[in-house]
Design a protein around this nucleic acid. Structure first.
Length: 380
RNA sequence: UCCUCAAUAGCUCAGUCGGUAGAGCAUUCGGCUGUUAACCGAAGUGUCGUAGGUUCGAGUCCUACUUGGGGAG
């Protein structure tokens, strides 16, 4: 049994677990709230996150390195102290930016050269650089530096890319071990998670999963999904790959996804999620409810006196009407964005709580079926 | 009273040499999956102030009128 992860119960392939870290223990399955630059976009404070029931906050290595600088954050005692958030933080390695900033980077064996998206200056990041930055940030969980190939990537490219990402993983592990011994390292118990890749090629995914599992890392992620493939392809990859990741380690599906995606992935043995959807869609006025998504900008809500979702305990639903929130959006008021983001984050964290209860009760399959049906309902 | 400038989409305005109209915003709807995203995309909307005239053809040139801005008295 891993010292950091306790698998409490299985209900089919769905898992209830507990992840123990130096920043506290969190309950899985869980959703991590994406705050790329050390803030959830939409004027959401760490106090808000606590009130909403957020267990883990996620930030980004590349973005914090470019602005304001991980060295500065280290001088503040790390990201936890800098942003005054004391529950776990997971830092993404910058690997996703290899994908999302594809037009401004060049990949080599040593690492990746980026053009800064801020001012165009040259930035080199390889496994060691990513580990050092994440060490400076002092995050609870550091992600391995990987390449995230697009879904449509050709098989031979993916084979080369995955092999390189595996070599990078060994370098990440070595650098992490070295940093863990240094006197001035902020979090010497930082957990390194490896990342499975292989696009939609199941055999590549499986072979990669087997090899990285041998490294006995404290957690493993499935990356490179939700980047252009269909939902069916994504579920298929998860279903066939997850069994080859260690049973006694947390499994994190990176960047996913919709409430339905999460239910399907939990059913296939995933424990951790993150996605920009609740925050980004919130800013864009798209709100999640148990009865489907609503676009608060739609004219039909102009005189709707109901809350976003009846019975929701979020700060927006406890006080404000759809009509008022729509008005705020239309007026370009930041409060409109904020209330929508708070609602969506609450919805996601609350959904995870419901998932955990249902697994505890051994009723996940029924819960999933009912929730999926409700989510596709047209009653708003 | 005279001189002058203007009048085109809901709003603010483009509109070439005369060839039957466009933009931004607004409106309506859609998209966003380890955030380059309070973003991006699509759609709808016109008696071109009114009435005449010139011309094969007028938003465009001419005349009168209406309304508004500025100026003179």
């Amino acid at each position: 049994m891993s010292e950091n992860f306790k698998l409490l119960k299985k209900d089919g392939e769905a898992r209830r677990g507990e992840l123990v870290t130096v920043h506290g223990t969190v309950q899985t399955p869980l959703f991590m709230n994406v705050g790329t630059v050390g803030a959830i976009k939409g004027a959401v404070s760490t106090e808000d996150l606590e009130n909403i029931g957020c267990q883990v906050e996620l930030s980004n290595t590349y973005h914090l390195h470019v602005r304001t600088g991980d060295d500065l954050i280290k001088r503040f005692g790390g990201l936890h102290r800098f942003m005054d958030w004391h529950r776990p933080i997971l830092t993404d390695s910058g690997g996703f930016q290899v994908f999302s900033l594809a037009s401004m980077r060049k990949i080599k064996e040593e690492g990746v050269t980026f053009r800064s998206h801020i001012d165009g200056h040259r930035i080199f990041m390889g496994p060691e650089e990513s580990m050092r930055i994440q060490s400076n940030l002092g995050s609870t969980i550091a992600m391995a530096f990987d390449e995230c190939p697009p879904a449509k990537a050709e098989r031979n490219y993916v084979l080369d890319s995955v092999a390189r990402t595996e070599r990078w993983l060994l370098r990440c592990k070595a650098e992490m071990e070295r940093l863990g011994l240094l006197e001035d390292t902020i979090n010497r118990k930082q957990l390194l998670f490896g990342i499975n890749q292989g696009a939609v090629y199941k055999d590549i995914r499986i072979e990669n999963a087997k090899r990285i599992s041998e490294l006995d890392l404290p957690g493993y992620a499935i990356g490179g999904l939700a980047v252009g493939e269909t939902h069916e392809e994504m579920y298929d990859v998860i279903e066939h790959t997850a069994p080859f990741l260690p049973e006694d380690k947390p499994r994190y599906l990176m960047g996913v996804g919709t409430p339905a995606n999460i239910l399907e992935a939990v059913e296939r043995g995933i424990d951790m999620f993150d996605c920009v959807y609740p925050s980004r869609n919130g800013r864009h006025g798209h709100l999640y409810t148990h009865y489907g998504k609503i676009n608060i900008n739609n004219a039909k809500y102009a005189e709707d006196d109901r809350p976003i979702e009846e019975g929701c305990g979020c700060p927006a639903c406890r006080r404000y009407s759809r009509a008022y929130i729509r008005h705020l959006h239309k007026a370009g008021e930041m409060l409109g964005l904020r209330l929508c983001v708070l609602h969506n984050l609450y919805f996601y964290n609350h959904l995870m709580e419901e998932i955990r209860y249902s697994i505890d009760a051994g009723e996940f399959a029924a819960f999933k079926k009912k929730t999926l049906a409700d989510l596709s309902s047209t009653e708003r």
